[in-house]
Nucleic acid binder design. Structure first.
Length: 865
RNA sequence: GCCCGGGUGGCGGAAUGGUAGACGCUGCGGACUUAAAAUCCGUUGUCCGCAAGGACGUGAGGGUUCGAGUCCCUCCUCGGGCACCA
């Protein structure tokens, strides 16, 4: 069963065992096996045309080691792989070459699969999934359909991020510093009709859920910041001379209400026109026009000076009835809170800056804590907490108590209430692209909509939300009707051209006979619009939604599909979900902290409420691998020419060396540069192992004996290695596990005889890291493949107990000598030995012994002067 | 600006408050070889010393401790995140 190699011929060995695993389906994960399950998930790749570089497999190697180790421990391991294959690059390639994205995607996947297979992963390929497969995206559409039904999808014409270069709108999360997340192109604001998902309805659940999952702190913090909960109060201000209008503001500092000396409205605030007095009209209109012209980047540029204009109106502070001026300024955003603020310049940096600029009054209402010994004067603004001053009845209270009291008093007089605000915005879910999941809705007129609603119990009405999803175009209301479950998947139609228009329409809009259809408001069936109206009632004219879903959609639930990949009746069988549950470990890059990882949690929470899944969180344990840099220490990029292809490395060093080196380079989570010399070193390690065990003709060496026991030192080292490797795999600290195996192999190399048991154990420890050579050697020491089915070695604690221990001698904390001393020696005995130590004695000469610190088994420190 | 995470030999990196630099790479010296590759042995933080040994040494400065890479304070610097969110 092994190869015929006489030396370490990694090419033959790796090809041989990869074939063996494939033919024997060694890594098949069977549902419902009576073993504890272990589901280990990798972030699945977008199959790009460039193929893999050396950085891609780092996380996959880590998860593969874990998978093989867990299998050896007796778990039923699920370790799948798939393709996140919708997306822009294939579509852009289609625009420039005319090649259908489906074809490009197919070829790229083949290339990726080939590259991945050469690394020797323990993947169950029978569960491979592809987000562009209609059998898969049927269920992506199904989830959307249910969100639609539950009022979580709506249509809205709103200013959105538009990227002229990509010719698509982007979600907030996809815009970074005014540039697109993909490609780094400039973006601008445009008004488009969009489909939006109500993720904000889940803000609190998404925040709460973070408390119960084992994720890197930094990622949790990012999500917390992105959700951006802030607790405060909404305060109602009367407006002088406008008895029917109120100004509502949100503040986190109701305790500073007495310090509010002016109000600011965002330029887009609905009351701006009404409140602007005629004498200020021109100035205000100019200001608003200018603000509208500015890009968001300009508006949020911190470096710039504050600008604003006075409206001529005054509001009345509800706590003291003071009249305060109402201003307009673009530092207040319409999209957060109420679009209006009370300005407390003494205790808010922005308000302070603005007040200085326009010479508005500044009243201190929170006492600053005096720094002990500090001579510096108190400086404003002071945004900390403290004792309230100049605050009427509240004077003397601490901020925290003051907040509560102000809120409860405002509530009593209906002038305010405690409020929670979130930074999180709803998820802009439509894209003007071809290569994405079609959104399963059609647009109809009011009559058709009423008719559909009236057909209670029909396939269509079952998915109509309580509040209609609609929008107005040229003064006419259009209503969304769902394409029901029975009509899914809604297939992506063929198109002549993949070119999007710069009017914000998807290439799908050009297929008129697909877009304009006859739609049956009872069954949800459709019929080409360029043909005659079909027989029967309930057929209406309808227009299909031509936007497609964003790439994130398919990755929101893919981990569920691996469990039940071929089910055409259900997204996942509940019994299967109950067996595999959520992944036990999720390994992937940190760059998706607020994109994929937030969207997927949102969808999963929704599926939990639908009772499709049994657990509320999808990823209970998460780990981010770091980035592998090019050999020059910079990020790998085509333009810099420092990209390394794993195939090239495997040709020269073998997959086992690649795997071992990527794990040996350093901590999994850190950023580290590739080194050809480094991989040389681990290959040498593998060749040495081969040489230690195999003679020149490829047989087990004579010095490896079945009927021998190792010397105590070897036995101790072996068991230390079992312990270290086991614990390091559990903790994903693979670099030190590899070091330890090197220490053991260096030791074994020096021995005259080695017991066969020790050799076997060593091969087993190595197997998760370098599976090909390990399978080969496992066979050659007389065992049956596959080595992953051999039970993981256990260490024997009793081996660690020795009768003599090494004690380090210190004088005044400095190491001065060491000795082997009986483990049960008393402090006095050890001290006596230390005093006579030739390296210790000179340092004690002429000094008084002040103190002795004895740590049994470790150290004896003599304090003397 | 605010919030995280780092900074240890020539390099990647190791070190539950207890021998700093494991392991690997590189360099140097040697063995084997006609030679090279491969392999093996020795050595490799800095300074002083023939040596034994000693002094210094984990970004900088201070502190806590018998003892600090590790804990605390201040600062420098690199990486990441957020950034007028009231």
């Amino acid at each position: 069963m092994s190869t015929e190699c006489t030396e370490y011929d990694f090419k033959k060995i790796e090809a041989h065992w990869q074939k063996f695993w494939k033919e024997n389906k060694t890594f098949r994960a069977e549902d419902f096996i009576d073993k504890p399950k272990y589901y280990i998930l990798d972030m699945f790749p977008y199959p790009s045309g460039a193929g893999l570089h050396i950085g891609h497999p780092e996380g996959w190697i880590a998860s593969d080691i874990l998978a093989r180790y867990k299998k050896a421990l007796g778990f039923n391991v699920l370790h799948p792989m798939g393709w996140d294959a919708f997306g822009l690059p294939a579509e852009q390639y289609a625009i420039s070459t005319g090649t259908h994205p489906r074809e490009t995607t197919r070829l790229n996947i083949e290339n990726f699969r080939q590259q991945i297979n050469r690394i020797g992963f323990a993947i169950d390929w029978d569960r491979e999934i592809n987000t562009t497969d209609p059998g898969y995206y049927k269920w992506t559409q199904w989830i959307f359909l249910h969100m639609f039904k539950h009022g979580l999808a709506y249509s809205d014409e709103r200013p959105v991020w538009w990227c002229p270069k990509l010719q698509s709108v982007l979600a907030n999360e996809e815009v970074i510093n005014g540039l697109s997340e993909r490609g780094g192109h400039p973006v601008e604001r445009r008004n488009f009709r969009q489909i939006v998902l109500r993720i904000t309805a889940y803000a609190e659940k998404l925040l709460e859920g973070l408390k119960n999952i084992d994720w890197p702190d930094s990622t949790k913090r990012q999500q917390i910041a992105w959700i951006g909960r802030s607790d405060g109060a909404e305060v109602v201000f009367d407006i002088d001379g406008y008895p029917d209008d109120k100004l509502n503001v949100f503040t986190t500092r109701p305790d500073t209400l007495f310090g509010a000396t002016y109000m600011v409205l965002s330029p887009e605030h609905p009351l701006v026109n009404k409140l602007t007095q005629s004498a200020y009209k021109n100035e205000v209109q100019d200001y608003i026009r200018n603000a509208a012209k500015k890009s968001d980047l300009d508006r949020t540029d911190l470096a710039k000076e504050k600008t604003g204009v006075f409206t001529g109106s005054f509001a009345i502070n509800p706590v003291n009835n003071e009249k305060i001026p109402v201003w307009i300024a673009d530092y207040v955003l319409m999209s957060y809170g109420t679009g209006a603020i009370m300005a407390v310049p003494a205790h808010d940096e922005r308000d302070y800056e603005f007040a200085q600029q326009f010479e508005l009054p500044i009243i201190e209402v929170i006492e600053q804590k005096q720094e002990v010994g500090s001579e510096s004067e108190n400086s404003l603004p002071y945004s900390g907490v403290g004792k309230m001053i100049n605050s009427g009845n509240y004077t003397g209270l601490d901020s925290a108590l003051g907040k509560e009291k102000v809120i409860s008093d405002l509530e009593k007089s209906s002038r305010g209430k405690a409020t929670v605000n979130y930074k999180l915005r709803d998820w802009l879910f439509s894209r003007q692209r071809y290569w994405g999941e079609p959104i399963p809705i059609v647009w109809v007129d009011e009559n058709a909509y009423e008719r559909a609603v009236g057909l209670t119990g029909s396939a269509v009405s079952a998915f109509i939300p309580k509040d209609p999803v609609r929008y107005k175009v040229d003064g006419i209301q259009r209503y969304a009707l769902p394409i029901p479950e029975s009509q899914l998947p809604l297939l992506l139609p063929e198109v002549e051209s993949f070119q999007p228009s710069d009017t914000g329409e998807s290439p799908l809009a050009n297929r008129r006979e697909w877009v304009e259809v006859w739609f049956n408001v009872d069954t949800g069936k459709s019929h080409p619009g360029d043909q005659e109206k079909p027989e029967g009632e309930n057929w209406v004219r309808a227009t299909r939604e031509t936007n497609t879903m964003p790439q994130w959609a398919g990755s929101c639930w893919y981990y569920l599909r691996y469990c039940d990949p071929n089910n055409d009746k259900k997204l996942i069988d509940p019994k299967i979900d109950d067996y595999w549950k959520s992944p036990d470990y999720y390994i992937g890059g940190a760059e998706h902290a607020v994109l994929h990882l937030l969207y997927a949690r949102f969808w999963h929470q929704f599926l939990y409420e639908l009772e499709v899944v049994k657990e509320p969180e999808p990823f209970c344990r998460l780990f981010h691998q770091g980035i592998i840099l090019g050999e020059d220490g910079t990020k790998m990029s085509k333009s810099k020419g420092n990209v390394i292809n794993p195939n090239v490395v495997i040709d020269e060093f073998g997959a086992d060396s690649l795997r071992l080196y990527e794990m040996f380079m350093g901590p999994l989570e850190s950023m580290k540069p590739w080194s050809t010399h480094g991989i040389d070193g681990v290959q040498r390690f593998l060749r040495r192992i081969w040489r230690v065990l195999m003679d020149r003709s490829g047989n087990l060496k004579n010095k490896i004996k079945e009927d021998t026991t190792d010397d105590p030192e070897t036995g101790l080292l072996l068991h230390q290695t079992i312990k270290k490797v086991t614990e390091d795999i559990e903790g994903l600290q693979f670099n030190t596990a590899v070091s330890q195996m090197m220490i053991l192999s260096n030791h074994l190399q020096k021995l005259e005889t080695i017991s066969l048991t020790t050799v076997k154990t060593f091969i087993q420890l190595l197997a998760p890291f370098a599976p090909h050579i390990s399978e080969e050697l496992w066979q050659r020491v007389g065992e049956e493949p596959s080595i992953v089915n051999a039970p993981w070695p256990r260490y024997d604690e009793s081996k660690f107990v020795t009768d003599k221990v090494k004690i380090i001698f210190q004088v005044n904390g400095k190491m001065r000598g060491e000795a082997l001393i009986p483990a049960d020696a008393e402090e006095n005995d050890v001290l006596a030995i230390a005093k006579e130590n030739p390296r210790v004695a000179p340092h004690l000469e002429g000094k008084n012994l002040r103190k002795v610190i004895f740590v049994p088994g470790k150290i004896l420190n003599i304090v003397a002067n």
